[in-house]
Structure formats: structure tokens, C-alpha cells
Amino acid sequence: MIDYQRLFHTGIRVPDVDAAMAEMGPTLGVTWASVQHNPAQQVWTPQQGLQTVALTFAYSCEGPQHLELLAGERGTIWDGSADPGVHHVGVWVDDVAAETERCVSAGWQVAAAAASPDDGYGAFTYVVPPSGPIVELVWSAIEPAFESWWSGGRLGSERS
């Protein structure tokens, strides 16, 4: 069962991450970890299969409930140009594949994943219950890397 007490972020699609950081940071009293730009983010969707897309994102440093700002290419699940706003909530899970399959068995749908179902979904999935809100299941093994990033370290494909 998904432990909702492990909720750690709210994902917000935006057209421009830097502009959203400037708009939201001072008013909400949050600072931001370094912006990440991944020009080759792998994502699998039921409609398009596995694809590589550009994704820019940043998280608030303050938690335990972080804000995640996402800006993706037009037409992707992260496209904030036409429909910006709250997109999903993220929850740490120890076994993404098992939790995703459990959700599917309960009537939920997979909206996207880091890898195809045949390849075990990867480090995250977006699952959607019939009532609608997207829940991102994120592999808890990467939590230490995020904690380090939120504390001023590097996450990965950091832009200058």
C-alpha cells in the first residue's frame, strides 16, 4: 500500500521555470535548489511509447513538502505552456514497479513512467485513479540524492 505520509512534493507545470521561481519564491518564502535541465529525459507514455524529451525543473529547498516546477516540450506530459498549474503530488515508494502494478490492479491507469512496463517502469511513474488526481510514485533509493540537492549539492545534469 502507498504510504501517503511519504508525500514529499507537489509538481506544478509552468511555461518558464526561472520566471515561476521569481514569482513564487518571495511570496511563498521558499528558496530554490539549482535548476536542472535535461535535454534527453526518457519518458514512456501509453500513447507514444518511450521517447526522449527536454525537461527543465527545480524544487524548493524547504520541506518536508517541496514544490517542484516543471517545464517540458509542447505536447509532453510536462508541457506547461497551455495548461499551467498543479499537475501531481509525489510520494516516495520502495518498489515503483510493485506499487504501480498494485494501482493498475485497483483500476488506476499509468499516465507516464521513466521506462516501459516491460522494463519495470524505472524510477518513477505517474498513476491516475478513476477520480483523477495524478500521483507520482518515486523510487525511494534516490531520496539521498534529492536531500543533497536541496541542501545545496548537485543532482545531475545541472545547468550553469
Rank of each mutant, 00 (worst) to 15 (best):
I2G: 02
L7R: 06
L7Q: 08
T10L: 03
I12K: 01
V14L: 07
V17H: 01
D18T: 13
A19G: 09
A20M: 04
P26T: 14
V35H: 13
Q42K: 09
P46R: 03
G49C: 10
L50I: 01
Q51W: 07
A54Y: 00
T56M: 10
F57K: 00
F57N: 05
S60N: 06
S60M: 02
G63R: 04
H66R: 13
E68V: 04
L69N: 01
L69M: 01
L69Q: 00
A71F: 00
A71P: 01
G75R: 12
I77W: 01
S81L: 12
P84F: 05
G85T: 06
V86A: 08
V91C: 03
D94N: 14
D95Q: 12
E99R: 03
E99T: 04
T100V: 10
G107Q: 08
A111P: 06
A113P: 03
D119R: 11
T125G: 13
V127E: 03
P130V: 04
P130S: 06
P133T: 07
W139V: 10
W139P: 02
I142Q: 15
P144C: 07
S148C: 14
S151L: 07
G153E: 04
G153P: 02
G153C: 03
G153Y: 03
G156R: 12
R159Q: 14
S160L: 14
